[in-house]
């Protein structure tokens, strides 16, 4: 078991024949992901990496039965691509693209929601179910199969966290990089119940950062609904106010969205909060040996 994706998930790639799309699609296929084709307008009918290329997502879905799309379309066109996926009946779009205009994502997410399509990202490393299915750009080799679910706003902190969990002798069920933009798809509130319901997952690591209040909402939800142990780290305790720390959404505006308030809320919800990402592995070991 796992959440959202597994070895049977049929995946198409939007922006399949571009540089990024090609490189990462190949890496995903090597990992074992069931990529059934891709979409690049005006390249329909061709073959790429041994898989069929289609002009539209609708054609790709009709021909392959794909339910998930991995999106590498450049930022200026990414909202269009996401809405196309939603329109074609895709169930989950994993949006890797960095630098999407916020206004575009606002419309794209509204349309996706209307059509019942889930989204992950944008500006994220994607999702991986260890040793089964990788839809994204993370280094697959560090994710050993196991019983820890991971949700993270940051790409490299996802790797850091997963690596520590595995070094401590545990492993990952599914890891989801949700991205650090102001508007994102699936977040803690949607993913926590999925991990709670997943019999394979025994503990959850959540990695957040400054800006917005998703972690505060998560804390409230955890307190009332999550029975599995949760370990959390919030990046940006030492970040200055009013400065955007790399991610478009990582900014403390006025006195809102600080690491401190998020850490306090999580601690009050019974979460094991660590002050450095270097302590994630040890904390997981601690909560799992209780």
């Amino acid at each position: 078991m796992s959440i959202l994706v597994n070895k049977d998930t049929k995946v198409i790639v939007q922006g399949f024949t571009g540089g990024e799309g090609t490189f990462h699609a190949e890496q995903c296929m090597d990992y074992g992901t069931n990529i059934v084709g891709g979409v690049t307008p005006n390249k329909g009918g061709q073959e790429h990496l041994g898989k069929p290329v289609f002009n539209t997502v609708a054609e790709a879905v009709a021909a392959t039965g794909a339910t998930v799309s991995m999106v590498f379309v450049p930022p200026a066109f990414v909202a269009d691509a996401v809405m196309e996926a939603a329109d074609a009946g895709i169930e989950l779009a994993v949006i890797i693209t960095e630098g999407a205009p916020v206004r575009d994502m606002m419309y794209a997410k509204m349309y996706a929601t209307k059509k019942g399509m889930k989204t992950i990202g944008p500006n994220c490393p994607g999702i991986i179910t260890a040793e089964e299915c990788k839809i994204g750009i993370m280094p697959g080799n560090i994710f050993k199969k196991g019983n820890v679910g991971l949700i993270s706003k940051s790409g490299t902190l996802t790797y850091e966290g997963a690596n520590q969990v595995c070094t401590e002798g545990f492993g990952i069920s599914t890891a989801v990089g949700i991205g650090g933009d102001p508007i994102i798809g699936l977040s803690y509130l949607q993913l926590l119940p999925m991990f709670e319901a997943d019999p394979e997952t025994e503990a959850i690591v959540m990695i957040g950062e400054i800006g917005g209040d998703l972690e505060i909402q998560a804390a409230k939800y955890i307190k009332e609904n999550i029975t599995k142990p949760v370990v959390a780290f919030i990046a940006g305790q030492t970040a200055p106010k009013g400065k955007r720390m790399g991610h478009a959404g990582a900014i403390v505006s006025g006195s809102a969205g600080t690491a401190k308030e998020k850490m306090e809320a999580l601690e009050a919800a019974g979460v094991k909060v660590v002050v450095s990402p270097a302590e994630i592995g040890k904390a997981v070991k601690e909560v799992l040996s209780k």
Binding site: T156, E160, I210, T238, A278
Partner: peptide, 18 residues
């Protein structure tokens, strides 16, 4: 000097921590 915004913030936090 770090790769990734999250790890970059996490590195600053860890320096502060020690």
């Amino acid at each position: 000097m770090v790769n990734g915004a999250g790890l970059a913030m996490g590195t600053m936090d860890t320096i502060n921590y020690v």
